[in-house]
Amino acid sequence: MVYSFLLLKIMHELSIAMGIVKIAEDETAKVKENTVTKIELEIGQLAGIEIDSLNFVWESAVKDSVLEKAIKEITIIPGKAKCADCDTVFYLENIYDSCPKCNSNFKGILQGKELRVKALEVI
């Protein structure tokens, strides 16, 4: 059970990594480049991606792609929400964290769901 969950988790990050590779391939093809030296990613803390798992699958995902030699730089965007009941803006680690002031669970997520390729550095 634990094993199969781990496997799923890794599959999940692998599919995300493949999505990143696809974007890099498409964007470099547009400008006729074929080696990326650095890729900048933005990943929100509430996006459901574990950086460790992403790092774990990265090497096999980028093999034989334009990203093979690229440095990966990840900006982690902390989760932030605004309470729908008392307007308090607060940071959250989990999507289910309640308002620290009034304990309400009703909130709007302001940031932390990002999953974005920010920039590519090519030679």
Binding site: K38, L115, V117, A119, L120, V122
Partner: peptide, 14 residues
């Protein structure tokens, strides 16, 4: 001296 391509694309956008 690298050229930077600003992408700003959501990974799940497709």
């Amino acid at each position: 001296q690298h050229k930077v391509l600003k992408i700003e694309q959501d990974i799940l956008q497709n």
